[in-house]
Design a protein around this nucleic acid. Structure first.
Lengths: 135, 135
DNA sequence: TACCGTTATGTTTGTTCGTGCATATCGATA
DNA sequence: TATCGATATGCACGAACAAACATAACGGTA
C-alpha cells in the first residue's frame, strides 16, 4: 500500500508562496544557527537556500530570519519570533491536513499501484551527480 | 491582505502524485467528453494533458479515464466511476483544507506584504536588501 | 593585523517542465 | 473508400528551477 503523504503550499497572491521547502529551511536554520549549515543539512545549495530566505523575508512585512555577518564564527542566522510563528502555523495546519487526508482519501489511495517502493526522497544529505557526463 | 490560497498535492510514494492540475483535467474531460477539448479548455497543450492522464492511469490499479479512438466524432475520453470518486475525494478534502487554513494562518498571512496586484515576474534585475538594516 | 567561517551575490551549467509542431492511426459515416 | 476529428507519440525548443563555481565583504579572535 502506497504511503500517501500530502504536501501543500500557501499561495500569497503576488507576494509569493510558502511551501514545505521554505518551512524546512527555517527549521534547519533554527536548529543549526546558520544558513550555510541549514543548506548543507537539507542537501541544497547555499545559493538557493539564500534565495529562499530572501523570498520569505520579502514576502512579509517583517523578517522570518535575520543574518549577521563576520565575527568569531563567521556569522550566523537566527529565526525571528515571527518566523517561529510561521513554522508553528504551517506545521499545525499540516498535521490537521494529514489527518483529514487519511479520512477522505483512504478509499481512493487503496487503489494506488505499488511499484518498487523505494524511499520517497527523505534523507539525501548530498546529491552530487557526475557533472562531466556528456550525453 | 493577500488572499491566501492553499494548493496541495497527494504524494503516492513511487507511483506518482495527484494535484490540482490532474484533478482539473479529469473534470474537464468529464465536461467536454474529450481529452483534446479538455486540454484546450484548461489552456494546456494536448501533449501535456495526455501525459498527465497517462500518469494518472499508471498511478492506480484501475484507470481514471478511458479513451476511444476513431469513429464518427474521431473518438473521445470518458471519466470512469473511479475517476469520479477520485475527483470527489480531492475536492472534498480541498474544501476542508481551505477552511482549516483560514483558521490557522489568519494571524500569519495578515503580515503578508501586499505588492502591486498581480505582477508575476516583474523585471527585477537585482534584489538588494539593505545590508545594514537593524541588528 | 592576519585568519577564518559565514553571509552575500554574480555567472555558468544542467535538469525538469511544458509548449509547439509533425506525424501516424483509428473507425464511423457520407 | 475518402474524410474528418480525436487519440497517440516522437522531437526540438524555451522557460523555470536549482546546483556548481567563483569571489567579495565582514568582524571577532588569536
Amino acid at each position: 500500500m502506497a504511503k500517501a503523504r500530502v504536501r501543500f503550499r500557501i499561495d500569497l497572491g503576488s507576494s509569493g508562496s510558502i511551501g514545505p521547502g521554505k518551512i524546512a529551511l527555517l527549521e534547519a536554520i533554527e536548529r543549526t544557527g546558520s544558513l550555510s549549515s541549514a543548506a548543507r543539512e537539507l542537501g541544497m545549495s547555499y545559493r538557493y537556500a539564500w534565495s529562499l530566505l530572501m523570498d520569505l523575508n520579502e514576502c512579509f512585512t517583517e523578517p522570518t530570519a535575520k543574518a549577521s555577518v563576520g565575527g568569531r564564527s563567521g556569522g550566523g542566522a537566527a529565526v525571528t519570533p515571527f518566523g517561529r510563528e510561521l513554522i508553528a502555523a504551517f506545521r499545525s495546519l499540516e498535521a490537521e491536513v494529514q489527518d483529514r487526508a487519511k479520512r477522505h482519501l483512504m478509499a481512493v489511495v487503496r487503489r494506488a499501484r505499488q511499484t518498487t517502493e523505494h524511499q520517497p526522497r527523505a534523507p539525501q544529505p548530498l546529491r552530487r551527480p557526475p557533472r562531466k557526463a556528456q550525453s
